[in-house]
Design a protein around this nucleic acid. Sequence first.
DNA 1: GAAGTTATTATACGCTTGAATAATATCGGC
DNA 2: GCCGATATTATTCAAGCGTATAATAACTTC
Lengths: 204, 204
Amino acid sequence: MTRRTFHRAPEGERRQELIEATLDCISEFGLKGATVRQIAIRAGVTAGLVRHYFESKDQMIAEAYRAVIASLTEQAQNVEGDPATRLREFIAVNFTEPVADSRSVSLWAAFISQVRVDPVLAEIHREGYLAFRNTLQELLSEFLAAKGRPASEEECRRYAIAINGLVDGLWVEGCLAGDLFRDGELVGIAMASVEAVLGLPIEN
Amino acid sequence: MTRRTFHRAPEGERRQELIEATLDCISEFGLKGATVRQIAIRAGVTAGLVRHYFESKDQMIAEAYRAVIASLTEQAQNVEGDPATRLREFIAVNFTEPVADSRSVSLWAAFISQVRVDPVLAEIHREGYLAFRNTLQELLSEFLAAKGRPASEEECRRYAIAINGLVDGLWVEGCLAGDLFRDGELVGIAMASVEAVLGLPIEN
DNA sequence: GAAGTTATTATACGCTTGAATAATATCGGC
DNA sequence: GCCGATATTATTCAAGCGTATAATAACTTC
């Protein structure tokens, strides 16, 4: 009886691999299908190792959720250029891979469904939502100012809530049933709707 | 050793109770917490009975999903009055209980997260989404015609997609973190945004 | 290249799960 | 008021769950 060989990975790397494997399993098998054993198989290690890196499975899941939120928001935070370009990019990113992907929305939904159950996840969600919305709000404020139509914080807040809802809603449906829409249709609808809401074109 | 007493419920009634108990458990404990035993306890029966009414737990879950979709859409289908009133009602319903409720969104998310896993649920979702959107599209068509600005089917389709996304996105956030918004704020933002998208007031 | 550290494997444990089965209480028909 | 049908309970089962523990292989250091 000989043991399987293995290599000792640097700590950070292995943790990352385990989190990635966790997300793979959740998106493919659902939260209840993401068992410690499945996750370990996906990561190419044995189940016991999970507890060497995480205090519990629940803690690993929470960290995995943080990773999801980060990947969904970082794309939106890193846009560059003048306000109009950034606003366009901010919207377009949500209808382009890797954000626009059935895996993403599965993960998002899996965690959303636990928000009511697990206060830790609820807090992670709230932080992520507010960060996303605040980024958008600031972007809108700059955009409106640049267009010569500066708006109050309160006004920008309302716009941010509306546009965030619009983009999120379209993102979900696009991810879930992309085949119901033509290529580029959703991003077109989103752009046109945002322009209508703001009462301004988003071109330069 | 004496058995517990019970009463024989009419078939339809008991099925309904079991489905309702299933939804309670999913929303409170998540999909993985909705075990046959928990569901039975919630329904006030013993676990074995589940299999008397359903071929398997999975089948019961699928039927429960149908019930969720139905309850989310039936409110929107049953609005009455002239087109403008119906459009306003259609929107408002989504920000009023029982649709606007953290239980609803938990259930919705729990099932959405399984769409990628289970083709049966995917089909149920698609049907529900299209029914909802088509109702909205027809409503918009009538509304625009009544306002003296009739629109093509293609135009109405685009409006329906946009407004459906907007309402869904705001609905999710409102349900998840209602305390981030003032009373009536979301429905106000939704109405204003829909008016902007359509370029028309929704009053009579 | 030997010794020490620890990341990783292997195995075991107690518990819960969905499902199958047999016993039985309830109720409608007569 | 009994009788047959069946809805419901009670019990059991194998499989899979998260976790704990001990053995060991892979690196680090000197």
